[in-house]
Simulated scan of single mutants.
Amino acid sequence: MIASLSGAVQHVGLDRAVIEVGGIGVLVYTTPRTASGLRTGAQASLATTLVVREDSLTLYGFDTSGERDTFETVQTVSGVGPRIALAMLAVLSPDEVARAVGAGDVTALTKVPGIGRKGAERLVLELRDKIGHVPGADAGAPSAAAGWQSQVTEALVGLGYTSKQADVAVDRVTPALGADPAVADALRAALRELGR
């Protein structure tokens, strides 16, 4: 998979750009917000994902790896393809998607073109354990702590725990770890907590 792309911007459209990489112009589809930040002739670096279909290879580019990860995750829901996933990121930021899914906010999700009420309910149902946790949502925690906490939570969810289990484990180990522990140490502590 092509995970990132860097080079000179040759062309910018409303929802796409052409970036020169090693003498080759690569077409990258993106959100209007990302496209608006690109300038012809300037250097650009995008987090990317390659969508392989029977009849095409399509590259999608994003400002951040968080946007790319959200794009990939929402496509795990049946009926959601790259176009709807890209439309979702054009309307909502990754944090807003996570908040809407975590809170079951169907109204926010139906603002996305192509997503009706039933589709929004399916998104909430299928994604709640995958992206329902909002990084940094712990009120009053220092920003460094929010950073390691979200990384550990994400790692635990990736290992198969639910967002709720991961949140509880991280909350329980936080007082003993201090403000800015190593993420690996925090993950080990959270896994020990979950093993009890």
Results as ranks from 00 to 15, higher is better:
residue 2 I to W: 02
residue 3 A to C: 04
residue 3 A to K: 12
residue 4 S to A: 08
residue 4 S to V: 04
residue 6 S to P: 08
residue 7 G to N: 12
residue 7 G to C: 05
residue 8 A to R: 06
residue 9 V to D: 00
residue 14 L to A: 05
residue 17 A to Y: 03
residue 18 V to G: 04
residue 23 G to K: 05
residue 26 V to Q: 11
residue 27 L to W: 00
residue 28 V to G: 11
residue 30 T to H: 05
residue 32 P to V: 02
residue 36 S to T: 11
residue 39 R to W: 02
residue 42 A to L: 06
residue 43 Q to R: 15
residue 45 S to L: 14
residue 48 T to Y: 05
residue 50 L to S: 09
residue 52 V to A: 14
residue 57 L to T: 07
residue 60 Y to N: 09
residue 61 G to L: 08
residue 61 G to E: 07
residue 63 D to E: 15
residue 64 T to P: 13
residue 68 R to Y: 13
residue 69 D to H: 14
residue 73 T to M: 09
residue 74 V to T: 03
residue 74 V to D: 02
residue 75 Q to H: 09
residue 77 V to G: 01
residue 78 S to D: 00
residue 78 S to F: 00
residue 84 I to Q: 01
residue 85 A to M: 09
residue 85 A to K: 03
residue 86 L to G: 13
residue 86 L to H: 05
residue 86 L to W: 08
residue 87 A to R: 05
residue 88 M to N: 03
residue 89 L to D: 03
residue 89 L to Q: 12
residue 91 V to Q: 12
residue 94 P to Q: 12
residue 98 A to G: 09
residue 109 L to W: 04
residue 118 K to V: 00
residue 118 K to Y: 00
residue 120 A to D: 01
residue 121 E to G: 03
residue 125 L to S: 02
residue 128 R to G: 08
residue 134 V to E: 07
residue 134 V to G: 12
residue 134 V to A: 10
residue 136 G to K: 09
residue 138 D to L: 02
residue 138 D to G: 12
residue 141 A to H: 07
residue 142 P to R: 13
residue 143 S to Y: 02
residue 145 A to N: 09
residue 145 A to I: 01
residue 147 G to N: 13
residue 152 V to Y: 15
residue 154 E to W: 14
residue 155 A to S: 14
residue 156 L to E: 13
residue 158 G to N: 01
residue 160 G to F: 04
residue 164 K to E: 12
residue 170 V to Q: 07
residue 170 V to F: 10
residue 172 R to G: 10
residue 173 V to W: 05
residue 173 V to E: 14
residue 174 T to G: 11
residue 174 T to V: 12
residue 175 P to C: 03
residue 176 A to V: 01
residue 178 G to W: 01
residue 186 A to F: 11
residue 187 L to H: 09
residue 187 L to Y: 10
residue 189 A to N: 14
residue 190 A to N: 06
residue 191 L to P: 14
residue 194 L to E: 00
residue 196 R to Q: 14
